[in-house]
Structures are given as structure tokens and as C-alpha cells.
Design a protein around this nucleic acid. Structure first.
Length: 485
RNA sequence: GGCGGCGUACCCAAGUGGCUAAGGGAGAGGUCUGCAAAACCUUUAUGCAGCGGUUCAAAUCCGCUCGCCGCCUCCA
């Protein structure tokens, strides 16, 4: 398996510190607001990485934190006139609601900053004792120039940064680059007792404390959005390695941004969509599929049109699943071998290897999805040839297994087709009930029997106007929700 | 100013040295159908921003040019 490592700037073979086991940490969210689709991307990317590592047989311990104390939370609490801990609780719940819908699994450990204050204080104390941090008026700062490797993750030079400094200068700090590992609290702000007086953790320190506690001083994979590389991960790395004297993380993995009109989506620009907004218009699976249809490190341009395309692709998948189900239900013993059989069998036998090859190469979900749709086409082609008999039944069953295996890794395509259409009835706001539709299909069937094509077509037209498509098959008609319009 | 990334068909998007440049959408034509839909087939990049270079061989490596974007400040 090869993984792109931000630290080295190269794809490297994935060799865990302990054979067969992987410790993995992904930065979760600061719980001060509802999540936007950028959070969704990050969560989904690391969810898939974790699922795939498991699929490949690794014993994965996945840790994803909540930052539940921070300036933004405090400000939010003031705005809303509630306690900071209530803010954290509220948005943690919102987070779970959104992520559950998107099929993002729970991590094995989901630690919170406020539950690790003693560990944080121990690290801060250690940093001071070792001379990496200094105390001023109850604040504790990490002294960047004491850590000679500073800048190795984000590839920047301390002097260059100082030259073009846009950082606001705090006169008390020895250098503008120094950052707080512990902040004294003002009156009325949340605080914890510490050797330096009442205060709270600096922004980066909680991740050092939580990774160390749950994954050890050195671990395999640390992930997050690319915007965390600097300063968050750079600082986290510096303070962790300064404290332990050991390498912190073996592989740093960062996902790319979502853009809107070619510009980074961000809260400060205001050009963002919340997960909830999008899920009001599209099925969660559509968003998940869309986010996986581009490699995780590339920027991904977000638009309604792209989501509609994703929806169309998913529909193609489920349409084929229906064909598969129909075939398996009505298969007969009469043996009919087709010319397609040999090629189809070959496709099936190499599928999983190709899927692994794609995912082994830095989690190339876009390529993996391409392979799934190649298989979909082969299945359709095979079924078009109208095979029958035991062999055909076996091949189709195998296809179905392969599809669900690969779908499970990505955690998409695991609905029943009916569930997909039920969900579409809701998101597309179809003004009919299923009974309404079946009723009309019945009427149309009678008209067709009379060969009253005009009447039959008018029923079709009526349903079509409301987004329902009728499909005539050999033993009756079925319906589905029209999409892509 | 410093550092980094990207530019592949009408659109989205894989591919980073060597078979016909994946896959999806859209368009055109066809098979099937009472008509449709779905599905399948054919077709749409002798070509990978442009120009040079390295190589037996380049979308893929190197250089320059143009265009777009990101980080350097909270940010997934």
C-alpha cells in the first residue's frame, strides 16, 4: 500500500510501527457551529481510509477528537447567552446527526479536550522544564526557535515567515512565532487550575495530549484538512516531539478543500454550505458519492450540477441492482450459455484485485468507483444476452457479492433499490404516494390491454410530469423516480 | 515577497515513462419497445495549457511561458 505523506512530500509504502496494527488520529471538529460540507469531506475521507485499512486486514485503532474548549466556543456562548459547555454539547449532537446520515462511522475513541486537562498540564509542565516553553503572566508559550525541526511539516522557514510576518505581535512573546500552549483565563471565562494559575489549553496542545494518551508517543497516521498543516499540525508536531524526544507521527495525511466558483470554501468568505442544507435537497449517499468521486487530495468544485451527476450515477447503480435481483428471482434451470460468459467471468475474477490496486495507491476512490461502473456495464451486457441456468445464476450472484464488498468499503451502494427510490420520493418531493402510483399503473395496464394507447400514454405522461417514470417489463410495469432534471 | 499545487474531450474525472488515454454525464446514430424508459453497441481528445529539451519511448521527467488556485492569520 502506498500513501502520500505530507511530511516527506512523497508517496510511501505504508509500513506500520507495529506489524498489522495501525494507530490513526484524525482531527475532528471544534464544536461551536453546525458542520459544513468541508467537514463532511474530511470526515468521509478518513472514514473510508479507516474502513479500507480494516478491509486489508489491519487492526486499526481510530481516534477522532472533539475540541470542546476554545475561543470560538466561548464567543458563541456569549452570543447565544448559554454556557460554553452547552454550546459544545449542542454542536456535538449536531455533528453526530449529520455524520450518521452521511454514513461516517464512530471512531474507536472520541476524546474531548476538556477530559484531558491533567494530561495537558503534564505536557505543558514538561515543556517548561525542558526549556521548550516559557511562562509569562500565567500564559505559557512554546518557543519555536528551541525546536530546530520547526517547519518540517509545512515546509517553511522560520526566518522567512518572520520576514513577511502578518502575525499580530504580542510584545511579551520572545518571538512572534511562539504560540500558546496554556492560556490564562479572564474573569468569567472557563478555567482549570494549573501551576501557572487558572487557565485553559492552547489550541494545539489538546491533540498532543489525546494522541499520546490513546495512541502512544509515536503512532502511524495523523490526518486532517490541508488547512490544518499550518499552524495546527506543525505546532502539534513541535510540542509533541519536543516533549517526548521521539518521532510523533509516521504518515501525515491531508485532504484537499472544497471550492465554490473555484475559490476555497470557508467560513470567513461566507461561501459555504452546511451539510444540513445539502441534505435538504439530496440524499446523503449523493453527497458521499460526490465527495469520493475525486481523489481526496485534489480540490473538488462543488455545485448542484455535480450533485445531480452523482445522483445519476448512483441511480445507474441501483437500476442495475434491480436487474440483478429480477434475474436471481426468476432464473430457470434451462441452461443457456452466451458468448459473453467467458469475458464476464474474467471480469469478475480480476475485479477485487483491481479494486485493491486502486485503493492501495493512496486511496484512489475515484478510480475505484470507475472500476465499479465498469463492472456495472459488464453485468448489464451479460444480462442483455439473456443467459440462464446454474452457471449464470452463480456468476450474477458473484457480481452482486463483489459489488457489495466494494460498496461496503466506501460505505455507499448498500441500500436496497426500493430504499433508494423511497428516499428519492422524499428529496424530490414527489406529490404521489406509492399507492397512487400503483393505482395509475393499474389503470394504464387495463388501457394497454384494450390497446388504447392514447389512454395509456396519458397516464404515463401524468406520472412523468410529476417525476415518475414507468418502465414496461415482460411481467408488468414498474416505476421509478426521474432524476437528473 | 516566500512556499506549494493544479491546467486531460462539450462538462465532471482517473491516469505521473511503454498496450486501444479509465469511468460518469451530455450530444449524435443504432438495437430493443405499441410508444417509451432502462440496457447495450457505435461515435465525440492521432490528443493531455503553450513552447523547447531529455529519452529508443513522455500527458507522465526537466526548463521556460501563460492561466487558475492554495498556504504563510481562525479555518476541514
Amino acid at each position: 500500500m502506498r500513501v502520500y505523506n505530507t511530511l516527506t512530500g512523497k508517496k510511501e509504502d505504508l509500513v506500520p510501527l507495529a506489524p498489522g496494527r495501525i494507530g490513526m488520529y484524525a482531527c475532528g471538529v471544534t464544536v461551536y457551529d453546525v458542520c459544513h460540507i468541508g467537514h463532511a469531506r474530511s470526515a468521509i475521507v478518513f472514514d473510508v481510509i479507516r474502513r479500507y485499512l480494516r478491509f486489508r486486514g489491519f487492526d486499526v485503532k481510530y481516534v477522532r477528537n472533539f475540541t470542546d474548549i476554545d475561543d470560538k466556543i466561548i464567543n458563541r456562548a456569549k452570543q447565544e447567552g448559554i454556557g460554553w459547555d452547552e454550546v459544545a454539547k449542542k454542536y456535538t449532537e449536531e455533528y453526530y446527526t449529520d455524520m450518521d446520515r452521511l454514513g461516517v462511522g464512530r471512531a474507536d475513541v472520541e476524546p474531548k479536550a476538556t477530559e484531558h486537562i491533567p494530561e495537558i498540564i503534564a505536557i505543558v509542565r514538561g515543556l517548561v522544564e525542558k526549556g521548550y516553553a516559557y511562562v509569562i503572566d500565567g500564559d505559557v508559550y512554546f518557543e519555536v526557535k528551541k525546536f530546530s525541526d520547526y517547519g518540517k511539516l509545512s515546509k517553511r522557514d522560520v526566518d522567512d515567515m518572520l520576514a513577511g510576518a502578518r502575525v499580530e505581535v504580542d510584545e511579551r512573546k520572545r518571538s512572534p512565532m511562539d504560540f500558546a500552549v496554556w492560556k490564562s483565563s479572564k474573569e468569567g471565562e472557563p478555567s482549570w487550575e494549573s501551576p501557572w494559575g487558572p487557565g485553559r489549553p492552547g489550541w494545539h496542545i489538546e491533540c498532543s495530549a489525546m494522541t499520546m494518551k490513546h495512541l502512544g508517543e509515536s503512532f502511524d497516521i495523523h490526518g486532517g484538512g490541508a488547512d490544518l498543516i499550518f499552524p495546527h499540525h506543525e505546532n502539534e508536531l513541535a510540542q509533541s516531539e519536543a516533549f517526548t524526544g521521539k518521532p510523533f507521527v509516521k504518515y501525515w495525511i491531508h485532504n484537499g478543500f472544497i471550492t465554490i466558483d473555484r475559490e476555497k470554501m470557508s467560513k470567513s468568505l461566507g461561501n459555504f454550505f452546511t451539510i444540513k442544507e445539502i441534505l435538504g435537497k439530496f440524499d446523503p449517499e449523493v453527497l458521499r458519492f460526490f465527495l469520493l468521486s475525486t481523489h481526496y487530495r485534489s480540490p473538488i468544485e462543488f455545485s448542484d450540477a455535480s450533485l445531480r451527476e452523482a445522483e445519476l450515477s448512483i441511480d445507474r447503480y441501483y437500476t442495475t441492482l434491480i436487474r440483478i435481483d429480477d434475474f436471481l428471482k426468476e432464473s430457470s434451470d434451462k441452461i443457456k450459455t452466451t458468448a459473453e460468459e467467458k469475458g464476464f467471468e474474467e471480469t469478475l475474477s480480476v475485479f477485487i484485485d483491481k479494486f485493491k490496486e486502486a485503493m492501495d495507491d493512496d486511496f484512489n476512490t475515484a478510480l475505484a468507483l470507475g472500476l465499479i461502473f465498469e463492472l456495472i456495464r459488464e453485468v448489464n451486457k451479460y444480462l442483455d444476452a439473456r443467459p440462464s441456468g446454474r452457471k449464470a445464476w452463480e456468476l450474477i450472484t458473484r457480481s452482486s457479492d463483489l459489488l457489495s464488498q466494494s460498496g461496503n468499503v466506501l460505505n455507499i451502494f448498500n441500500k436496497k433499490p426500493e430504499e433508494w427510490y423511497d428516499a428519492l420520493m422524499v428529496t424530490k418531493r414527489i406529490p404521489f404516494t406509492k399507492a397512487d402510483i400503483l393505482d395509475r399503473i393499474e389503470q394504464r395496464q387495463e388501457a394497454r390491454q384494450r390497446k388504447d394507447w392514447a389512454a395509456a400514454d396519458s397516464v404515463r405522461k401524468e406520472l412523468e410530469d410529476q417525476g415518475i417514470i414507468i418502465e414496461d417489463k415482460k411481467n408488468g410495469s414498474t416505476w421509478k423516480v426521474m432524476i437528473g432534471k
